[in-house]
Nucleic acid binder design. Structure first.
Lengths: 110, 110
DNA sequence: CAGTTTATTCGCAATATTGCGAAAACGCAA
DNA sequence: TTGCGTTTTCGCAATATTGCGAATAAACTG
């Protein structure tokens, strides 16, 4: 489950800089749409959680919904931003769940 | 939801139930998709409801999220099956809402 | 009724998501 | 270390969703 998309970084021995890179480098989307990014993370984690709870490997779950392990892996990547309702429903269906969608008001604090 | 007999349906004014009867009564082959179809209906109605509550025309909402009225109309069509998380979030964002997604266990029965 | 606004339908191009294999990386145990 | 199963990454084709205008229908006003 990759937490990091950064690639081809030049070498460094500064631990602080390494952490900084891990958190912020190459992730403008996270800074701009923090809320959405966090929601995607939550979805990814939830999928992983459900699969683990069902004691299934990525390959096993993949077969259940008619796809491959690499697809499941992609869904469980917290940086993946392409989650679709269709796929969530397929996952849910295979794990005896249903996808509940609600619109909840946002309190735009003063 | 009351159980349904093959004959002597009692009267109803609920449009959803009428549609349900017309499309799915006595057709177990389609029951598999019923849940998803109803979920899509719910989404469509919710979007329409939110837009109305905000006192916006389809054109106005469309401009808010950077698209056209025909797209909004499509989203509000209860038979539309192409709902995406991305679009729901755009709608929600324009109407000061957020999209909450939950996986809830379902009791699988006949 | 004629005007005006809003809503709906249709077709196709543009964009986004999925399918899928292959290779590499990882974790673990003998 | 090796072997083995699992996970991750990458690239591109296939499919699905969106963008958008134009035409039509429907609803509303005067």
């Amino acid at each position: 489950m990759p937490d990091n998309k950064a690639k081809t970084l030049k070498p460094t021995s500064d631990a602080v800089e390494i952490l900084h890179r891990r958190l912020y480098e190459g992730k403008p989307a996270r800074l701009k749409n923090l809320e959405e990014a966090r929601a995607n993370e939550e979805i990814a984690r939830k999928i992983q959680e459900l699969r683990s709870a069902a004691a299934l490997t990525q390959t096993q779950l993949a077969k259940l919904i008619g796809t491959t392990a690499s697809v499941i892996c992609r869904l469980e990547d917290v940086d993946y931003e392409g989650h679709s309702l269709a796929m969530l429903r397929r996952i849910a269906g295979a794990l005896n769940q249903r996808v509940e969608i609600r619109f909840v008001p946002i309190r735009r604090s003063a």
